[in-house]
Design a protein around this nucleic acid. Structure first.
Lengths: 246, 246
DNA sequence: CGCACGATTGATGTCCCTCAACATGAGTGG
DNA sequence: CCACTCATGTTGAGGGACATCAATCGTGCG
């Protein structure tokens, strides 16, 4: 696989060949991790910066009454904790959802990067800006949309992001999520998530089977979801763009 | 006022005296802006980086069906769009909620800063990390908590942040929000936000009058809200810390 | 005064939750 | 090969949280 990470950075802005080479050279120390393993836990003071090379992971937090909330999905090419290098302590946890290949970068590598490769540093900063924009969009999603629209909006986003790293197959991609995870993401009960999925399925908008999602008509789903990919700041969004007004 | 911005950065990590002086020197170009004015609109390509020196502002977005969602409040010392300097287009809008004093920094200033003042640059990066952590916490808030708890959690956060910049008076501070704004923040209807406020008021937890909030017992409200300030990454949180388990 | 805006309250409906039962499929051990 | 378990998905019934519609009330302001 030609490195989803390179592909992702490239999809923001073309990378310098020098930077490409340098990036390839550093992805040395990698590890295979099983599904359902915490990569980083809340309260940790992480020593490495982690990069997902393959597989699916999530950021989450557990409230004091035991409710879990998932607020990000990490797909190949995503950093786990670029941002937290600066902070003393993780304020949330990260766990794998499927078996993953993970690169462990030393803080020194990141430091070197920020000092000697300004254009790359910009690209990385860009990554965290997009993460932030994504959080904002998720907030809108939770605050303003009904369950089925919420869920389908998530699917649109994941499709767009998976496509940017070359992991879609014509509206279909791996999605190793249980309905429990989906509901903890959407602030819904499992039961209601299930019923909403059923509604989407019966409307012919999405079907979900064997850890794989199929979207027969991506554009139709995007319209249904009021999905406008501009917050992802990709150079080539799969969708021209939604119908959001000013 | 001894510059809320300095105070904020200081509350993450003590500032270098040199950096303090430099910071004071740049807050030259400021402007007074009325309430309810868009500082930046979605789609803009902003030319300046804005810093709130006094007053209250918000980030928001409007969905295609006309629903507004607010996903951040900006208080003195907060950057509006540090982050978006890199992006081509704003993916959301920023508007004042009260009359504000705003500093306009040229992108050049920021560039100079990131190149010549690494420790300051770290402090600024820190600001965006905290913004991001705050978004995550808001997501948990919307996804997992009931209306009254949601609202009181917001109040706890604002109290903590206002305190960090010296704008609280013993559990009380300016809060120029209408119930409409509150409900657009919380993903609630105005009516329900009103009833939830009533509940909080009758429980003696908070009262809200004349654009000012009074929290008789901050610790009690924090317990009620399951509020743990650690996501704000302040050096001296007003609250020792909540009861969040691992 | 009369107007606009925000806050408040009542009545009614709906979205979503909880509890509970049952179905399905993968894995395990006999 | 079958009984068993466990995790996940699915469906029904009833209740609660929250939405919507509508009316009223206070207050600052031209």
């Amino acid at each position: 696989m030609p490195n989803a990470f390179l592909r992702k950075l490239d999809s923001f802005e073309p990378l310098h060949p020098d930077d490409r080479d340098w990036l390839k050279s550093i992805s040395s120390r990698t590890r295979e991790v099983d599904a359902d393993i915490d990569l980083i836990s809340e309260g940790d003071n992480p020593e490495n910066v982690l990069l997902i090379l393959a597989g699916f992971a999530m950021r989450y937090k557990v409230t004091s009454d035991g409710r879990r909330h998932i607020f990000a999905y990490l797909i190949p090419g995503d950093f786990c904790d670029l941002h937290v290098a600066l902070l003393k302590k993780m304020d949330h946890s990260i766990a794998t959802l499927s078996p993953c290949r993970v690169a462990y970068l030393s803080p020194g590598t990141i430091l070197e990067l920020t000092e000697r490769r300004p254009s790359l540093a910009r690209a990385l900063w860009m990554c965290s800006l997009v993460d932030e924009a994504t959080l904002r969009e998720w907030l809108v999603n939770l605050g303003q949309r009904s369950a089925p629209h919420r869920i389908s909006h998530l699917f649109c986003e994941l499709h767009e992001r998976m496509k940017a790293v070359g992991l879609t197959d014509d509206g279909s991609f791996e999605l190793p999520l249980t309905q429990a995870e989906l509901s903890d993401t959407m602030g819904l009960s499992i039961v209601h998530a299930n019923r909403s999925l059923k509604e989407l399925r019966e409307a012919g908008l999405v079907s979900l089977k064997n850890e794989r999602i199929v979207i027969p008509n991506v554009r139709r789903l995007a319209e249904y979801s009021d999905f406008d990919p501009s917050y992802l700041h990709l150079r080539w969004p799969a969708l021209a763009h939604g119908s959001r007004q000013r």
